[in-house]
Design a protein around this nucleic acid. Structure first.
Lengths: 257, 257
DNA sequence: TGTGAACCTTGATTTAGATCAAACAATTCA
DNA sequence: TGAATTGTTTGATCTAAATCAAGGTTCACA
């Protein structure tokens, strides 16, 4: 696709020239289907060319390292397709997945010069990459963008606190139930009549590393929920929730009350 | 102390009048000793009267509820003295402390209309309280303030991720070591020659609820570290670290490598 | 379409930390 | 000052989840 001619208006300040170096299709952001799910919806329609130029779209195969733990913080990513796992590790290899970033989520924000976490694709992923200087220009020039990012980070912090409650105080059963429920609520299956299908693109190892359990415990717990007809298996990467109510009760520890 | 006369300059936009309703000493922020440790350092010296008027200083006794879990989000607090614990609970009473906010830290930021967490003072605490509308005015009028807040929340998220690694993957010994080390590093004792003294204003119950353990395990672990001469007790609320190196090794799981 | 590798499940056994129990400080306040 | 209360330590026992072990599935690709 040939790049469309630049149609900057006279009101655009000169320093925005700095971001106009991507060489990508400037219509990319205009036609982006998930824009209103992400921080990019803070940029006005007639400024989207600037956003497109500030970022570069990348398509990444499964198990690609996006961010190496401890490496220099150079880029910021917005996920437009697929799922990325974020994690922290101990020297002996123990790993904790701190979150899954799927469609509409960003990753790579940090104050330090180096990333304190790693990031790897779970499946085939599309991201828009913003290099740090470009990101800073966006933050400076678009107050709404900064506000949106603040809101997004605040939400992530609330999610992290919920996960601390899970890791510190919930049983294995409660953890698995919480996980399935959260994925059902936050990433509902789009197909009609299939609302209660939870997609699990990640492996059991990833689920275990997210829930602070072993793969054996995750597997046993899922089997047990299946035996009790609370869930039903479609295949290993999809689960149908038969009783959202019971799952909800389990997740908040109200099994025997 | 009588309130000093208002000396607003002619450049102050009219809508800032909205924040000029505190009736407090407008010099409070100017003489605030911990201003440069907090988000307030984003406000220029000659604008500090606005900050003082936008907030109200409160002195709170130990065990005061600042934020009720699930209550309407009406205020934002900046801690200027003492320590506040933030927590989340399950219906049956299990509790996870998600962090301790001490001097210089803020609390109460949320996107939702209600707080998803609770907050209670550990000891005698001084806070500056900003009501939501005032906070929003500050965010709108002072880009630096907003930027500083974004940085602060980003840091908190990184801390939360570190805590998830602790809760999900560390042993009791590693958790206690990490906790002592983090408190030593982030809240160093000011007294000269006493650099390795860690102050623990919270009870064992609080430490246990922060580390995802029971009080018995916390107590036993501290006793064991004392027996091994890695730490020495001053009293129950103070610990001297005898070997920061060994503690650091323990905290990152390198005990037997 | 078959074969190896990666992934998942189930069973037996072990263990770190929880729970139960009791004594021992420290702090409050009458 | 001392009795009550709250907080801490230590010991004995239990258990949820880890570890160890072995099959069973699924998937990629030759």
């Amino acid at each position: 696709m040939p790049p469309a001619p630049q149609t900057r208006t006279s009101t655009t300040p000169m320093r925005r020239r700095l971001v106009l170096n991507g060489g990508e299709d400037i219509h990319r952001c205009l036609v982006c289907e998930i824009r209103d799910q992400s921080v990019c919806n803070a940029i006005d329609d007639n400024e989207l060319a600037i956003l497109a130029k500030a970022s570069k779209q990348l398509s990444l195969p499964p198990a690609t390292t996006l961010i190496e733990e401890g490496s220099a913080a150079q880029a910021f990513y917005n996920v437009t397709a697929g799922t990325v796992k974020l994690f922290k590790s101990l020297p002996d290899g123990r790993r904790q997945i701190t979150g899954f970033a799927d469609v509409g989520h960003f990753l790579g924000l940090t104050n330090a010069g180096t990333y304190s976490f790693g990031a790897e694709t779970v499946n085939t992923v599309q991201v828009c990459r913003f290099m740090r200087p470009q990101l800073e220009i966006l933050l400076n020039d678009y107050p709404l963008f900064e506000r949106r990012l603040l809101a997004e980070v605040t939400d992530e912090l609330a999610e992290a606190q919920e996960q601390m409650l899970l890791l510190g105080r919930k049983t294995a059963r409660e953890r698995v139930a919480s996980f399935l429920l959260a994925r059902m609520v936050h990433r509902p299956c789009q197909v009609k009549g299939e609302e209660n299908i939870v997609s699990l693109p990640m492996t059991r190892v990833d689920i275990a590393d997210y829930l602070g359990l072993t793969i054996e415990t995750v597997s046993r717990t899922i089997s047990s929920l299946r035996r009790e007809k609370i869930i039903a298996g479609t295949d290993h990467h999809g689960i149908r929730v038969l009783s959202p109510t019971r799952l909800q009760g389990l997740a908040s520890g109200q099994e025997h009350s």
